[in-house]
Design a protein around this nucleic acid. Structure first.
Lengths: 189, 189
DNA sequence: GGAGTAAGTTAGTACTCAATCACTAACTAA
DNA sequence: TTAGTTAGTGATTGAGTACTAACTTACTCC
C-alpha cells in the first residue's frame, strides 16, 4: 500500500476518472471502477470528493483546462497559418496520445443535456464557459477571424466524433482532415 | 387505454426511446422512463423488443436513416452550392424542430467507445457503416469533393455539439455558422 | 356467442451501485 | 513515547433497474 497526500490522491482520481468517464459516460461508470483504477477502496473516493458528481465535474474541468493549455502552448508566438498548423498538430498528438481526454470532452458535452433537464443549470454554465474560453484561446492566434475560428473548431469536433466512433487511422474518413493534408488543400486553392 | 398493433407500438417506443436516450444516454435512461413516455407498462417493452440494447439500437438506426433521408431529400435534383445550402437549411430545421434526433446521434457516437471496450464490435461496425452512408449521401451532391464533404460534416458536428451544450440561438458561438451567414462569408471571399 | 389470439398488466426476482459508518494503520510534532 | 492527525479499509444499506412469469382484457372470425 502506497500512502499519498490527499491532494496527490485527488490528482490520481481525476486521471482515472477521465479515463473511466470517457469510456462509459457519467451513468455508465461506477465509482468502484474508478477506485479500482486508482488502486484505492471505493468508499475512500467519498473522502476525497463529496460525491460522484463532484468527481465528474473535476475531471471535466481538468479536461477543458488541458485542452486550452494545449492550444495556448502550441500557438505561443505564432499567428495565422502557422498558428493553425501548430494547433492542429498539437491536437492530433492529443488524439493519438491521450484519447481518453477527447472522449471525456465528448461525454462532458453530452452530459449537459441531462443535467440541464434535471434542473442543474450550473453544470451547463460551466461547460459553456469552458467552451468560450477555448474559443477565445484559438480565436486570437487565428487572426481574430470568426470564420477561421469556427472552421478550426468544427474540424476539431469532427475529429473528436470520428475518433470516438473508432475509425482506424487509415480509413478514408480521415482524408482531407489530417492537418497536413488539409493545409495542402488550402494552399492549393 | 388505447390498443395498438405491436408494430405501431414499436414505432412509438422508438420515438420515445430517441427522446429519452438522447437526453440521458444508454446508461442514464431507464426502460421505465421510456415506457412512461410511451404510455405503457415497463415489462411490455420486453415483449416488443428482446432487451434494452435492442431498443437503443433500433432508435440509433432510425436516427441515422432519418438524417440520411433529410439530406437526400433536401439535395434532390441540386448540386454544388445549391445542394450545400439546401442541406444546411434542412439540418437547421432538424436542430430546431427535432433536437432529440441530434442528441440521439451524439449519444450513439459516444456509446461506441463503451461498446467497443466491452467486446461488442457489432455496434461500432453498424455506427461506422451508418456514418459512411451519410458521408456518401452528402458527398455526391457536393460535387464529390472530399474537402467540401468533410467541411460540411465538420460544421454539422460542431452544430450538434453546440446545440448539445445548450447554447441559445442568439449566442455569438453561432456566428459564422448559420448557413446563410456562412454562405455569405463564402461568397464574399 | 364462444374460441382463439394478440395486447397489455401486476407482482416479483436478482443484481448493481452510490453512499455511510465504524473501524485500523501510518505518520508527525512535542 | 505518546497524543493527535491523516490515509485508508470492510461491511452494509437502501434505492433503483433490467428482465421474467403468470395472469387479464380486448378484439376477431367462424
Amino acid at each position: 500500500m502506497v500512502r499519498m497526500s490527499a491532494e496527490e490522491r485527488r490528482e490520481s482520481v481525476i486521471r482515472a476518472a477521465t479515463a473511466e468517464f470517457g469510456r462509459g459516460g457519467y451513468h455508465g461508470t461506477s465509482t468502484e471502477a474508478i477506485a479500482k483504477r486508482v488502486g484505492v477502496s471505493q468508499p475512500y473516493l467519498f473522502r476525497l470528493f463529496p460525491g460522484k458528481k463532484a468527481i465528474f465535474l473535476a475531471a471535466a474541468e481538468r479536461c477543458v483546462e488541458d485542452t486550452i493549455r494545449t492550444f495556448a502552448e502550441a500557438s505561443a508566438g505564432l499567428e495565422g497559418e502557422e498558428a493553425l498548423h501548430a494547433m492542429a498538430d498539437a491536437y492530433t498528438e492529443v488524439i493519438t496520445e491521450r484519447p481518453e481526454q477527447l472522449m471525456m470532452q465528448m461525454q462532458m458535452y453530452v452530459a449537459v443535456a441531462a443535467a440541464e433537464q434535471e434542473g442543474d443549470h450550473e453544470f451547463g454554465e460551466a461547460v459553456r464557459a469552458g467552451w468560450m474560453r477555448l474559443w477565445d484561446t484559438v480565436h486570437l492566434p487565428l487572426g481574430a477571424d470568426v470564420n477561421e475560428t469556427t472552421t478550426f473548431l468544427a474540424y476539431g469536433m469532427l475529429v473528436n466524433c470520428l475518433a470516438g466512433m473508432g475509425f482506424p487511422p487509415e480509413h478514408r474518413v480521415w482524408e482531407g482532415l489530417y492537418p497536413s493534408a488539409r493545409l495542402k488543400g488550402r494552399l492549393e486553392r
